[in-house]
Design a protein around this nucleic acid. Structure first.
Lengths: 207, 207
DNA sequence: TGTACATCAGTGAACGCGCGTTCACTGATGTAC
DNA sequence: TGTACATCAGTGAACGCGCGTTCACTGATGTAC
């Protein structure tokens, strides 16, 4: 961001608005997110946004897309160093997911359902991209024999759902036991993943 | 509800408001929920609610409490016929949970986090009651030896998180594969539970 | 290099709206005697 | 059983607010010649 820039033309308003929107959302939730407030933060008149976003929902959609892209990038980054070790990769991935959710709880909610799904194909595509990262890791696990053969998509869905739900619960601080000896988030994530991996394991203990 | 009742005094406004609030929420989400609209539906002046609810947040809290109570009652009812069969009980419970979420998606979100958690002890208590139902079932499973010994609360948390997340994903229709041959919800729930139960199983296939 | 002009990106005033909440009130209810 | 009166549960008008969106506009930019 260059302060020397012309004070009339902004340079990169769309992205600047997006950044401030994410910030406003973070502070006040969806209820507190208004185009006017976002414009205010961007130091721009309250209707300048209409030059770049058709309406409020359009901005929300862009935020969700940004969210999925950021999430994907973080997961990809967290997973990269552990090539060939799907267990470690998976842990890195879900840990990243949970942390992302703890960092942007309201954004996560926008990403999942505050928007008319099918109206925004770009949203769908970026969500799909994030899901594919998970699929790849599980596929690798399957090749290495630590995950049973079977429908990978179903397993990926179960995995996603588990950590999505865990994130929401951690965010809400609605864990119904809040003892002083409560587990740290990190540990909760780890042991949840272990349950899941045992469930995915090919070594079935038939009884 | 008695139409013959005095037209001035309503009889049971608090509950009537609550019912309409749940309905309004269902139709328009949190964004669309206003005290005025709720009052309108109840056929009552727009400020009559203040006689029974201190403010809007207070009504939201009551809605969340209603949600947890309803959820608990449904789970208890679904689970009751299968005394002594924890596997079946667990399936009934999680199926009920998912269906509840599909029926009241916005309510579920209010129950989980739209509210200042600790400000509403009644909320916490009713949430806890629902969680205890799950704990009981898992405890029974542990006694019967189909669930490994270990921290029940951790397992219950994992279980809750899994199906909470699954519900959100199903609600959002954000399942990244939407093939015509996609699994039915019921089947997704069942196979997810099977993964989880294998994960909880005491018959560990150490490798 | 200089100028005319279309295009683009912003401004500021104004619109209509529904909201939460407060106020002074009024009608109905129930209790003391 | 009858009446006075406190209490309770509703009403209707009014408040101030911030919102999304539209309008006619103006300043900056870039391109054709």
């Amino acid at each position: 961001v260059d302060d020397q820039k012309s004070s009339y033309h902004h340079g990169n308003l769309p992205d600047t608005l997006l950044e401030h929107a994410v910030e406003v959302l973070h502070e006040g939730g969806v209820e507190g997110l208004s185009l006017r407030e976002v414009a205010r933060r961007a130091g721009v008149s309250h209707n300048a946004a209409y030059r770049h976003y058709a309406d409020k929902k359009s901005l929300l959609a862009s935020m969700a897309v940004w969210g999925f892209n950021t999430l994907s990038a973080r997961i990809a980054g967290a997973v990269a160093p552990f090539s060939g070790a799907p267990r470690t990769r998976l842990f890195a991935a879900v840990r990243t997911y949970v942390n992302f959710g703890l960092e942007y709880p309201h954004l996560l909610r926008i990403m999942f359902g505050d928007l008319p799904h099918s109206d925004y194909p770009e949203l769908r595509a970026t969500a799909r991209k994030a899901f594919d990262l998970l699929l790849d890791i599980l596929a690798e696990g399957q090749q290495q024999g630590i995950i049973a053969s079977g429908d990978l998509r179903q397993m990926a869905l179960t995995c996603w759902a588990t950590f999505h739900g865990l994130t929401e619960i951690l965010v809400a601080q609605k864990i119904p036991f809040q003892d002083p000896d409560a587990l740290e988030n990190e540990q909760i994530v780890r042991s949840t993943l272990e349950v899941l991996l045992q469930g995915f394991s090919p070594h079935k203990g038939k009884d």
